[in-house]
């Protein structure tokens, strides 16, 4: 799966798609801090060398430089490793968000996807850090196909956006199911009536797998792709909480402050039901593949099935 040729990685798709969009959006610029090869922004450079900037290894400057470009009417897309962009959290807060600037931040290598490099390079806290920023929107595409669909949409969405993708592993999640993307709108990957599984990003592969397995056990599980984490689709969460009475969240991020927290904030306000949150609880480590890490930290189909069975045993 890791090296599957059938489906290109999200970063590869990002690099190709953003280069394609450069023809349509003449003010589109791509800015990076010496990781153009890794983020695949390099494809844009090959096509538009005068609209591509490598600011050197300086993430704080990267963010404010992009903010300045946006102020003059350009449309800068900042690319970098999710982890190292967090080094410029204060610049994102104090300049981009305070001034509500039209800067799109494409954070690659998120979650455990930089599996070889280990915990220094893995980003399991970024969604929490971005969620608390006023005006910031957060998009987590499920797969490469959703990258293709959502990139043109976010370029037309005004204001700051944090767009989180992984490195290589990108199983086909939305193929044949979805054909549209709208900021703030969750999509139903599978309907169900006994339990709702809400996920974002590649972990939805395990969510779908577990829902199929649960089906064999006569348990009807809905799977929701929450590709916009902020602003979150409150209506979808409430309606499925009412419909199924149990909610599980699964994310490649710390359970504090991420998707699980965001969903639970809606649940407690709108329609309290029992919940379980699956995600990271600590820093990661090195491994030969991202898949190995997801299994090692129990962010997988087995955990979702176990959590579902536990919730179904609950009476309330």
């Amino acid at each position: 799966m890791q090296k599957s040729k059938a489906f290109s990685s999200m970063r590869e798709t990002f690099g190709r798609k953003i280069s394609e969009l450069g023809d349509e959006y003449k003010n589109l610029l791509v800015v990076t801090a010496d990781v153009g090869e890794s983020t695949k922004a390099i494809y844009f450079k090959e096509k538009f060398p005068n609209r591509y900037f490598n600011v050197g290894i300086s993430e704080q400057h990267l963010i404010d430089f992009a903010a300045g470009l946006a102020t003059t009417g350009k449309l800068p897309v900042v690319t970098g490793f999710a982890m190292f962009l967090m080094r410029a959290w204060e610049q994102i807060r104090n300049t981009i968000c305070r001034m509500n600037l039209n800067v799109k931040i494409v954070a690659t290598h998120s979650g455990y996807s930089d599996n070889n490099d280990g915990s220094s390079h893995q980003s399991l806290e970024d969604i929490a850090l971005m969620r608390v920023l006023p005006r910031m929107k957060i998009i987590v595409p499920a797969d490469s196909l959703e990258v293709k669909r959502s990139l043109p949409v976010i370029l037309n969405e005004p204001g700051p956006i944090y767009y989180r993708i992984g490195r290589d592993y990108s199983p086909p999640i939305t193929q044949g199911i979805l054909n549209h993307f709208k900021v703030g709108e969750a999509t139903i990957l599978k309907d169900g009536s006994d339990i709702t599984i809400i996920g974002a990003g590649i972990v939805l592969w395990d969510a779908i797998k577990s829902a199929k397995r649960l089906e064999q056990m006569n348990i009807s599980a809905a799977v929701i792709n929450m590709s916009t984490i902020k602003p979150i689709d409150e209506k979808a969460i409430e309606s499925y909480a009412r419909k199924t009475g149990r909610v599980i969240t699964v994310e490649e991020h710390n359970v504090l402050g991420g998707l699980g927290s965001a969903v639970s904030e809606v649940i407690v306000k709108k329609y309290p039901v029992p919940m379980k949150m699956i995600g990271a609880n600590d820093f990661g480590r090195s491994a030969r593949s991202q898949r190995e890490l997801l299994d090692y930290y129990k962010i997988n189909d087995k955990s979702i099935i176990n959590a579902s069975l536990e919730l179904l045993r609950l009476r309330y």
Binding site: Q60, H61, D64, A67, G68, L69, T72, Q91
Partner: peptide, 17 residues
């Protein structure tokens, strides 16, 4: 520490236009 970076972005944006 942030003003100069922002100014560099604006100055480049002006030059590009």
């Amino acid at each position: 520490g942030q003003g100069l970076s922002f100014g560099v972005g604006i100055a480049k944006g002006i030059k590009m236009s």
